[in-house]
């Protein structure tokens, strides 16, 4: 177990290193941020001064070496635009995105598993077919379009929920939370539903096919022959088996959820890292873009490690000692 963890952490470090190289070259080697930062009427001397101050006059490998050394100390550079550490900017806004992404994940799982179970237990019923048809729709509708429709219906037409912004928050453990503030959930609901929709469709399909698969197994007939109540058969025997694929996929998709929050955050003016990334891209604020990408890779690696551990906890047939359980 310890060996497994060590190996995985080493793998994660390798991936981070390679990604840092790729991201650095990709982001720093192309385009010239000086064009953006310096007044077009500035003299060549002024431009050179700014370049020197930001370290942009050095050869690329020197820039990378400095970047890597700093990164290891938690310094991912200073935002060109805000003049504050890029990592600080991101960490400041991370809780808003995490709250949004976790809420979306909860909606997808808490709604998707029961719906998928229901559709799996009654695949030929009207309800079951409707759920599955709805999940196909959830797959094909673009997120941003659904977001607009949600705003049009619930904010503009019905006037039930606010159309954007984070609204009131309350501090807890040093972070701001919408859910803890009175009325905060009203601001969170629409963006969370918007972000959840695609994953909801995914969870429904996974659960439905997993349920149908499980019902055909001999151990289900044996569970019935034991006289177990239906509640226990579905709630324990079926659920525990389908939790394995659902947890794996949902866990791995959590990273995509954060990536896709770019779209949702920009529609609902949600002040998270997705909106920050979008602003930084359009304004060529490279340190922030790099910091964002490295953070995403880091989160991805953490998630896949966590998924492996949960997977091993759920499926007794998996052993972690080999370290090859990737």
């Amino acid at each position: 177990m310890t060996l497994f963890l060590l190996r995985r952490l080493l793998q994660a470090a390798q991936v981070l290193f390679v990604m840092s190289l790729l991201v650095f070259v990709g982001v720093y080697a192309i385009g010239n941020p000086l064009d953006m930062l310096v007044d077009p009427q500035a003299t060549a001397a002024d431009t050179a001064r700014v370049a020197a101050a930001l370290g942009l006059d050095q050869p690329l490998w020197v820039q990378y070496w400095r970047f890597l050394a700093n990164a290891l100390q938690g310094d991912l550079g200073i935002s060109f635009l805000h003049g504050t550490p890029a990592l600080h900017l991101i960490v400041q806004r991370l809780p808003a995105t995490l709250e949004l992404a976790v809420s979306a994940l909860l909606i997808a799982v808490l709604l998707g598993i029961p719906l998928g179970l229901w559709a799996g237990l009654r695949p030929d019923s009207f309800g079951g077919r409707t759920v599955m048809a709805g999940s196909i729709l959830g797959f094909s509708l673009p997120t941003f379009w659904v977001g607009l429709m949600l705003i049009m219906l619930f904010s503009v037409h019905l006037g039930w929920l606010p159309s954007g912004g984070r609204g009131p928050t309350r501090e807890f453990l040093g972070l701001e939370w919408s859910l803890l503030a009175p009325g905060g959930w009203r601001h969170l609901l629409l963006p969370a539903v918007n972000l959840a929709l695609f994953k909801l469709a995914l969870v429904i399909r996974l659960t439905q096919s997993g349920t149908r698969e499980a019902l055909l197994q001999d151990y289900m007939r044996f569970a019935r022959a034991k006289g177990l109540p239906a509640r226990r058969i579905v709630g324990v025997h079926v659920l525990k088996n389908i939790m394995i694929p659902v947890v794996t996929v949902v866990g791995l998709e959590f990273g995509t959820l954060i990536a896709f929050s770019v779209v949702t955050e920009s529609i609902f003016a949600w002040p998270g890292i997705g909106k920050l990334l979008l602003d930084s891209i359009t304004q060529l604020d490279r340190p922030v873009v790099v910091a964002y990408l490295l953070l995403i890779v880091f989160i991805y690696t953490l998630i896949s490690l966590a998924v492996d551990l949960i997977y091993a906890a759920l499926d007794p047939r998996v052993r972690l000692a080999g370290g090859q359980a990737a």
Partner: peptide, 23 residues
């Protein structure tokens, strides 16, 4: 349901498949 597993029990052919693998 009250009868099955209590008054009448059944055993199946393949022991590899009759026990739930994750419990």
């Amino acid at each position: 349901q009250a009868l099955r597993g209590d008054r009448i029990a059944m055993i199946f052919q393949d022991p590899m498949l009759t026990l739930n693998p994750v419990l």
